[in-house]
Design a protein around this nucleic acid. Structure first.
Lengths: 169, 169
DNA sequence: CGTATAATGTTATGTTATAACATTTACAAG
DNA sequence: CTTGTAAATGTTATAACATAACATTATACG
């Protein structure tokens, strides 16, 4: 089970969940992925990954920077971006283009998975959506137009189940 | 017929098409939309719209700025962003989040249409994809997770039909 | 051990976007 | 036509996001 909030695999992260577990799970899996790919999860990369996993809300590069430098550090932006690049290259982190921010990958190790994201306008919580029908429809629609797909960004903004006023759907 | 390149409605803009016609069509339609919405397509807004329509390749705000200032103008970035905001609010222009760039809307006047984009990695040409099945699959997948959709970004990067090597699909 | 490669450190700068406030313009009510 | 007001524009400054270029240090492997 690879859910990001210990519920049903496709459940949206719940407000009160034990997030420490998300973080520790993520770090353990990241170690495993890096070991199997024979790449190094160095100190700074690990710290950036931890920062990204502080919550299910995407975090900006400069927010990560502030955190790392909170105790008087001298890390430079470049170093953060390099660590993020590494983490993205290895499928550990995703970039949310509409927010210029980054979020931990909920499906580490599943090579090359193309993710879709649900972004709550109210609480900021962002979850991955893995919908096979959606993926199929997308591939189909693109192919019909003679386009060769390379990569895709799907970011859906709205209200998560916990922020949706009752009665609405 | 609202195609962006005078072919089949869903055709990808062709390299050699008469683009002057795209531009003039777009400006005419924009006038109509603004008239019907009782908003003003002022000088700067019109010039920004023209700049956006110079091609089917998304253009950055600062590129627009350079163009407007080419003849010794003194327009400031803020003015460009304000014009772009107006054009987006009125459905005349779209923002491509993955490129931090802007492109003319191929479906002006169709209120609130949620667009998907095909972005060619080779020539940069970007076209709108209006796929009903894709839209349905997306709404369905999102609803299943109890999420209330508000807006969506779908940007697909790859090779357009004119840049796809023969034999591949 | 030494050397090649990967990773990190450092400085500077490029690029995208907005805040805040001043001025001008359009337009309608009196 | 003139005056109030809302919309639009002009202007300055700065915030926020990202990368280039080069120096230094660490790792690992022959």
């Amino acid at each position: 089970m690879t859910s990001s909030a210990h519920g049903h695999p496709s459940a949206f992260p719940k407000p009160g969940h034990n997030h420490a577990r998300c973080t520790s799970d993520a770090l353990r899996r990241a170690e495993a992925v890096c070991a199997s790919r024979k790449v190094r999860l160095t100190e700074i990369r690990r710290r950036v990954l931890e920062a990204v996993w502080q919550s299910h809300v995407p975090v900006g590069a400069y927010d990560i920077l502030s955190q790392l430098n909170a105790g008087g550090g001298r890390t430079a932006p470049m170093q953060i971006y390099r660590a993020l690049e590494f983490l993205m290259d290895n499928g550990l982190v995703h970039r949310i283009a509409s927010l210029n921010a980054f979020i931990g990958c909920a499906h580490m190790g599943e090579d090359n998975h193309a993710a879709q994201f649900l972004i709550c306008r109210s609480c900021g919580t962002t979850a991955e959506l893995e919908s096979a029908p959606l993926k199929r429809a997308l591939i189909q629609a693109v192919a019909e137009r003679g386009f060769t797909i390379d990569s895709q960004i799907v970011e859906i903004s709205g209200f998560c189940p916990h922020c949706t006023p009752k009665g609405r759907t």
